[in-house]
């Protein structure tokens, strides 16, 4: 087992920030059926102390759940139903394609920090946390860790997973949907610059009825390009080139296209009940966690 160093840990989450994260918990707009008993209210009636409902006694019910007071008053047998408390499955899909290994501030590091923070909050609240890295397919995973003491595993995973290959979101989503049928919160951290498009991939994910959060991370250079003159642009993912003469008109056109692309993606997500968030790596990531995610109701 690789030993996670304090430095690597601090790079993703500094101790001061983790203290703040301790106060937070992930919430889901949907209540999922968990595998294990947890700290969350479940749709299923269970054995928690929280009353849910009554029903008529039928043969075979546990006599311990009979409400004797009602029986005394009404002479009928009723069973007291309590809410079941289950754990929450929190999954982070981290884009590790080469396009994420770019930008200043670095997009990949930014995404890993967000992933680390989400993982920490989940682990701190005894949620089951899964981390998946993808580029052209799933590249690595850390599945089902629970409890704060396993945070080091998450850090280790996030630190060591390499940037590789072009982005193939569709394939990765397809593999993920097969790999994880269980519903839960799914955060996708990516720039969503996929030449194959995002629609099919999102279809796979939406079909699984996950509580989906798409977080699009772009660097300032992508939002406000500072290129001038005649340049040969090389795509870091597939070495595709584009010779352009950067003009004000071209810059304006690029920004409009970017706006349109992001707007289309947001609309696509909104229509399908997927939560969309856009962030620049210029915005401090803790602000994203503490403010943006709160506003969006992902954490409280």
């Amino acid at each position: 087992m690789a030993v996670i160093t304090q430095k690597q840990s601090d790079e993703l989450l500094d101790p001061e920030f983790t203290t703040k994260l301790d106060q937070l918990e992930l919430i889901s707009r949907k209540i999922f059926v968990g595998k294990m008993r947890g700290e969350r209210r479940s749709k299923r009636r269970g054995e928690s102390v929280e009353f849910a409902d009554y029903r008529n006694y039928v043969f075979g019910d546990d006599l311990r759940h009979l409400d004797w007071n009602i029986y005394a008053r009404l002479d009928s047998l009723f069973i007291k139903l309590f809410l079941e408390e289950e754990d929450l499955l929190v999954t982070v899909l981290l884009d590790v394609s080469k396009s994420m290994d770019w930008g200043n501030p670095h997009k990949g590091l930014y995404a890993r920090r967000v992933a680390a923070a989400i993982a920490y909050i989940g682990l701190a609240n005894y949620d089951r946390v899964s981390l998946f890295a993808y580029s052209n397919g799933l590249r690595g995973e850390l599945v089902g860790v629970r409890g704060r003491r396993l945070m080091f595993k998450a850090i280790e995973f996030l630190t060591n997973v390499p940037y590789a290959g072009p982005s193939h979101f569709e394939l990765a989503a397809k593999q993920f949907a097969i790999r994880q049928p269980q519903r839960g919160i799914v955060l996708i951290l990516s720039d969503f610059f996929d030449k194959g498009g995002y629609e099919q991939a999102m279809r796979y994910l939406v079909g699984r009825n996950y509580d989906l959060y798409t977080i699009q991370i772009l660097s300032p250079e992508e939002i406000e390009p500072t290129l001038t003159g005649d340049v040969k642009l090389v795509d870091v993912e597939d070495d595709d080139t584009a010779e352009v003469t950067v003009s004000r008109a071209l810059i304006n056109r690029y920004k409009k296209n970017l706006q349109a692309y992001c707007g289309d993606f947001r609309e696509y997500c909104t229509r399908r009940g997927v939560n969309y968030m856009f962030t620049s790596t210029e915005i401090p990531f803790d602000e994203v966690i503490m403010s943006y995610f709160r506003k969006r109701g992902l954490i409280r």
């Binding site: 396009s99 994420m100 770019w102 930008g103 997009k107 720039d191 610059f193 030449k195 660097s219 250079e221 992508e222 290129l227 003159g229 005649d230 340049v231 040969k232 642009l233 090389v234 795509d235 870091v236 993912e237 595709d240 080139t241 584009a242 010779e243 352009v244 071209l250 056109r253 690029y254 409009k256 296209n257 970017l258 692309y261």
Partner: peptide, 16 residues
């Protein structure tokens, strides 16, 4: 032409 690496040429090509 000066070579510049970008995360994706997708939007640039579309703009051109």
């Amino acid at each position: 032409r000066e070579v510049h690496a970008v995360s994706s040429t997708m939007l640039w090509k579309r703009a051109v």
